[in-house]
Design a protein around this nucleic acid. Sequence first.
DNA 1: AAACAGTGCAACCGCTCTGAC
DNA 2: TGTCAGAGCGGTTGCACTGTT
Length: 351
Amino acid sequence: MGRSPCCEINGVKKGPWTPEEDMKLIQYIQVHGPCNWRTLPKNAGLQRCGKSCRLRWTNYLRPDIKRGRFSFEEEETIIQLHSVLGNKWSAIAARLPRRTDNEIKNYWNTHIRKRLLRNGIDPVTHAPRLDHLDLSSFINLPQINLSNLLRLQTLLNPEALRLAASLQENPEVLLAKLQEHQLFNAQLQNQTPVFQTNQFENNLDQQIPLCNPSNALPAATSHSNQSHLMQGNVRQFSMNSEYLSGQTFQDTLTTAFESVYPLENFSYGASNQLQKDLSENTSFQSLNSGSNSSGHNFSFDSVLSTPVSSQYLPNSSSTFINGNTEDERENYCTSLSKFEKPESLDFDDFM
DNA sequence: AAACAGTGCAACCGCTCTGAC
DNA sequence: TGTCAGAGCGGTTGCACTGTT
């Protein structure tokens, strides 16, 4: 028997949400909480289906959502988690505080995936693939740096290592070898040891503390040898918990709406006050103006930037937060091709 | 200036999972 | 045990924006 639709087809609005609809939804949830999505639209006076309301809330209006560009640490975390978990966006999102699975999925598909491909890395298997490598830039280098290629030793098969070694001695071989790369990649895909999702997932749950308010920080800090992967998360959560701890739920909801609709666009309230509060907060000042241990600056611009449909907001800056440029991230992804495994993952336990 | 192509992302779709009854 | 509603998930789409010709 087919399931009845969650909403009637007629009379239900689709498409981008308006500020008025968002306001209704937030106000309703402020009073009643996020429950019973089927009846919520009617009770809240919205011409939307419950599912649409739930998605809008969970992916956009929820107060504990961080908006804006992904930080360097977040991107690093996503890539490493994806190599273990695959396209399990919710599982990845559970380890990235204040990011939604939808946002991570979109960011992966529009940024990280393409960057990995350009750097010759298969975004599905995270194994090297010469047929996706941006060979034009590779060949145009005055001296092809094959030592990086040799550093792929973690996952490359012996054939790849022999190729890299021979190329280091005789770069002219490259073009000839490239003609064979289809065959090479066919072998590579079959031989390269690739993380098996079901193999690692349970161990990951045990070894990597989840970054949620109930357990993340103590658990994470108690594991002094946790990988760099999670250190970024812990730093971020520490920051997030400072942000949330001083606010009531309703305060948080209010500031969430104000961050969605900044003051310059709507006069819904104290967006400027929020920013003032942030700047006056000692911990925020130190975090915002300083650098973390990795030397990447945090910026609360990400929290307050462009979280609403673009037709309601002015253009956002194209610059990265944290001072990361596209080139820097490109280089970082190149370095990721070294395939360093997280220290917290003991491969012997899995094999 | 106009046309076109490429990009990014919010939102939707269809399916599965889970728990109540 | 089967049915159903609610919720969650991953894949896909539509469209506004941006860059290029």
